[in-house]
Computed example of a mutant assay.
Amino acid sequence: MSSSSSAWDAHLAASLVRDAGGLAHRMRTGTLDVRAKTSASDVVTAADEAAEALVVERLTAERPGDGIVGEEGAAREGSTGRRWVVDPVDGTFNFVQGLDWWCSALALAAGEQVLLGAVHHPHDAVTWVGGPDLPTTRDGQPVARITDRPLADCALATYLHTTWWGVPEVAEPFAAVAGAARVMRMNGSGSMDLAAVADGRMDLWLHHSVPEWDWMPGCALVEGAGGVWEQIELCGYTWSVAGPPTAVAETVALLRGEPARG
């Protein structure tokens, strides 16, 4: 049983997200069947399902012993102790609306340990791959290492759906962090946001109650670029934060209602 990743896994991951993203991008030019899932902004299309099916078919053939977990329902138990976590189209609302901030993403994990992540942005034809033991690259070129900085100097990529604004246990810690950052952006794709943190276009990422397919691919990229990540439980919610060590520590302190500390 192997719980490690290899260069072959990284190559496969990059190929899978490129192919899945390319398929979704082609399907986007036609008429899409759009259905709501949990809310008006949480939607699924035939492109999500077709892209996930493509990834599952490839993984079944090339990594038959590994497990699979997909956002659109793919599930397979494995025998290796590893699983592939698949998000065929991350940012589906943007995808449907004709906005470009969406991607295909996946991660390879062993238990709760994320081994590597891959993200492909079809609009710019850019692919990121990285992990804790795999320095993050953008189209095969190493990204610059993340520079440590305080929260006050960080551009914060985040998201808070309007349904949570009236929930004090979520809205108040969120506001404490957002108010301490240099600037805040809500772009609508967790994996794209985390890829932007990994390659220096954003500085820090924060979200609550995020599913593993929206978290694992990107947090692997951030770690592979020299950043850190942390998940904490607070009032029944799990908060996920990734970026420079000092800013992450300050964010965790503010979420807990403590004085910010680096």
Rank of each mutant, 00 (worst) to 15 (best):
H25L: 13
G70V: 14
G224R: 15
S39G: 06
H208N: 06
S39E: 03
L134R: 09
A253N: 05
R182C: 07
G131A: 06
V56T: 12
V55G: 05
G140K: 09
G179S: 10
M1K: 03
L234D: 04
E250V: 03
L221P: 02
A110F: 12
A7K: 02
A20H: 02
V119Q: 00
Q231M: 07
M186W: 00
A61F: 13
L221K: 00
R201W: 13
P173Q: 01
D66E: 12
V55I: 15
H123Q: 12
A171D: 04
E172C: 03
S5K: 04
R261T: 11
A36G: 02
A198V: 04
V69N: 07
D48R: 03
L234C: 03
T127Q: 00
V96T: 12
G166N: 10
A195Y: 04
A152T: 12
G65C: 07
A107C: 07
S240Y: 07
G190C: 15
W164T: 07
K37N: 03
L12W: 07
T147Q: 15
R83E: 09
C154Q: 04
E62S: 09
R28I: 06
L12F: 06
D153H: 05
P132N: 13
T137F: 00
M202Q: 11
S6V: 09
S191K: 01
R82I: 10
R182M: 12
P259A: 02
S4Q: 09
E71P: 12
R256K: 12
G21I: 08
W164K: 06
D133Y: 03
D148Y: 15
H121W: 12
D66R: 13
L12D: 08
K37G: 02
A171C: 07
L116F: 09
A180T: 11
M192R: 10
L106R: 00
V126F: 00
R182F: 14
A51F: 11
A125P: 02
L99M: 12
G218P: 01
A7D: 10
T60A: 08
A181F: 11
T29A: 15
V197P: 00
W229N: 13
C235P: 11
R256S: 06
G257S: 01
N187F: 13
E233L: 05
R35W: 05
S5E: 02
T80N: 00
S3I: 13
M186Q: 11
H25R: 10
G111E: 09
T80E: 01
G179I: 03
W213P: 00
F93K: 15
A225F: 07
V210A: 12
D153L: 04
S191W: 00
E57L: 05
G188V: 08
L99P: 01
S15P: 04
A10C: 12
A50T: 10
A36N: 11
G111K: 15
G218Y: 07
L59N: 09
D193R: 04
V167W: 09
E77T: 15
G22H: 11
A110Y: 14
T80R: 05
P122G: 08
V55P: 08
A107F: 09
F93W: 13
A46F: 08
P64L: 14
H120T: 09
A198N: 04
R28P: 02
